[in-house]
Amino acid sequence: MLGNKTGGAGLVVLASTVLIAGCDGWMGETSGEVDITAMNADELAEYLVLETDSYRFEQEAQEGGSARERMKQDGIQAACSLEGDPDADTAGEVIAMARESYEEPPGGPRLGNWRRGAELARSGYGYRIGHRNDDHGSREPGGNCYACHQMDPAEELYGTLGPSLAGYGATRGNDSSVVNYVHQVVSNPHQYFPCTKMPRFGHNNFLTEEQIAHIMAYLLDPESPVNQ
């Protein structure tokens, strides 16, 4: 992950002025006396996230590494921390970063089993940590697709943050260009939709390549309920 924003460099540490009078001062606990008004808003936000003991950073994240790693931004996360849509330059940079880090699965993208894909697309389990931790040993993490997309037109519970994908394969077919495109989107959608709200399921190792193959079958297999 790129610590490309401000790190500790922007902090203004005052040697003598006592800014913290109370004994439960958060600033005093971790870093001496810090004048938060001497930082700009970006610097202060980074400082608050990384230096004030606001998170349970010592916890292990399911994808490996500590919880702290989750809160350090990579290039795309930093570039897309925006109100509204990215400008043309930012969009171009984000697309370039996304393309550069894209990896095809060994042997190329393929379709798995749509029945398995249906379960994975519905499941919202996985990767949550904090006051309660998802246990991947007892339950497989899922893709949360229904949180944002309509898929099977017969399913009534679906979110609307993303476009409807009902009939996705029926309208587009499933030749290799379609299969490749869908893999690129599910793995890292910023290649086509810079700063999209959709997670990078492949890039972030949120889903395995095998799981992605199953979900792709759910979208593209002519037998899948998505395409009825």
């Binding site: 996230v49 989750r70 809160m71 931004q73 996360q77 897309c80 921390s81 990767y127 997670p199 972030n204």
Partner: peptide, 8 residues
């Protein structure tokens, strides 16, 4: 507006 975490 700060992006982060396993789902960006």
């Amino acid at each position: 507006y700060r992006r982060g975490g396993a789902m960006d």
